[in-house]
Simulated assay, not measured.
Amino acid sequence: MTALPSLLDALVLIAIGGLAGFINVLSAGGSMLTLPLLMFLGLPPQVANGTNRVSVVFQSVSAVGNFWRVGASQVGLSLRLAVPAVVGSLLGVWLALRVSDAIFEAVLVTVMAASAVMMLLPQPRLETRPLTAERLTPPVYLAMFAIGVYGGFIQVGVGVLFIVVLYRLLRIDLAQVNVIKVFIVLIYTLPALGLFLWHDQVRWSYGLLLAVGSMSGAWLAVRVNMGPRGALWVRWLTLGVIVAIMLRLLMG
């Protein structure tokens, strides 16, 4: 059994969880901070992967609830998109539980590097339009399934994929992308967390401390959900930390 986190570790978990929750709602990349942090604090990679889902669930609950209270919701359409994502996430967790720690760490460094590069790319200014049921074509559902597989496997940078599909392909404005994204992430992460729990890959003390911070960060992010400009500076807030984390992972 992993020992309980020290007071200093607890404070770090809450602080980084807060930053990650804020980032995940407004943009993407929060798990690029929390997953490596859990590994640095001594959790094996697969346990860190499962434990990270605790904070993802709680921050998503916080964000969805707060979006609902301020009148921003897309429940019906989000539920439709969430169905293939849930199926995909179960497959993703199944795969994650079967790879070695070395392979998982290699995948983590690779996706962090790719996500960081994508975060640096400027978002094109697109003419957006509201999402309707008629626009949910089979390729869109297939894309949601693929995002679910990826999210179930590692979660890191999954928000970047949502931005590619929902903003760049479907041309939904970024403020609404954030609303739909956090709802779908909540729906597919619940069964994913259940599978990690079933396989004893979750450490609640670490996960709940992260969740305390991430819920606070998500609550704040909902109140500054301002579309394209609201997410621009968030990328630069995290890139320096992400580079440092990648170097630490590469150094073993």
Rank of each mutant, 00 (worst) to 15 (best):
Ile187Asn: 07
Met144Cys: 14
Gly159Lys: 00
Val164Ala: 12
Val185Arg: 08
Val177Ser: 01
Leu186Lys: 09
Val156Ile: 11
Leu186Glu: 10
Thr189Pro: 08
Gly148Tyr: 08
Val149Leu: 09
Tyr167His: 15
Pro138Ser: 04
Lys181Cys: 02
Gly151Trp: 09
Val164Cys: 03
Val140Pro: 06
Arg171Ile: 12
Ala175Tyr: 00
Ile184Tyr: 08
Ile147Cys: 06
Leu186Pro: 09
Val156Tyr: 04
Leu190Glu: 12
Val182Asp: 00
Phe162Glu: 02
Val160Arg: 02
Leu142Tyr: 05
Val165Gly: 12
Val185Pro: 03
Val165Trp: 05
Ile187Cys: 14
Arg171Val: 11
Asp173Met: 05
Val149Pro: 05
Ile184Trp: 03
Leu190Gln: 12
Leu190Met: 14
Val165Thr: 08
Lys181Leu: 01
Tyr141Trp: 13
Val185Glu: 10
Leu193Val: 13
Val179Ile: 05
Lys181Trp: 00
Val158Pro: 00
Phe183Met: 10
Leu193Arg: 12
Gly148His: 11
Ile187Leu: 14
Gly152Gln: 03
Leu161Asn: 08
Thr137Cys: 04
Gly157Arg: 05
Gly152Trp: 07
Leu142Gln: 11
Gly157His: 04
Ile187Thr: 14
Gly159Asp: 02
Gly151Asn: 08
Leu142Cys: 13
Leu166Val: 05
Ala175Lys: 13
Ala146Leu: 15
Phe153Cys: 08
Gly151Met: 08
Val156His: 02
Phe145Pro: 02
Gly157Asn: 05
Ile180Asp: 00
Val177Glu: 00
Ala143His: 08
Ala143Asn: 09
Val185Phe: 09
Pro139Arg: 04
Val164Ile: 13
Phe153Ile: 04
Phe145Ala: 11
Leu193Cys: 14
Ala143Ser: 15
Gly157Gln: 04
Leu142Met: 15
Ile147Asn: 01
Pro138Val: 01
Phe162Asp: 01
Gln155Asp: 06
Leu161His: 08
Leu136Tyr: 00
Tyr150Ile: 03
Leu190Asp: 12
Val158Thr: 13
Val158Tyr: 00
Leu186Val: 07
Pro139Val: 09
Val140Gly: 10
Ile184Ala: 09
Tyr141Asp: 13
Leu190Val: 15
Tyr150Glu: 01
Ile180Gln: 01
Tyr141Pro: 07
Gln176Met: 12
Ala192Arg: 07
Ile163Pro: 05
Gly152Val: 07
Arg171Tyr: 10
Gly159Asn: 00
Asn178Trp: 01
Gly157Pro: 00
Val164Leu: 13
Gly151Ser: 06
Lys181Ala: 01
Val165Ala: 08
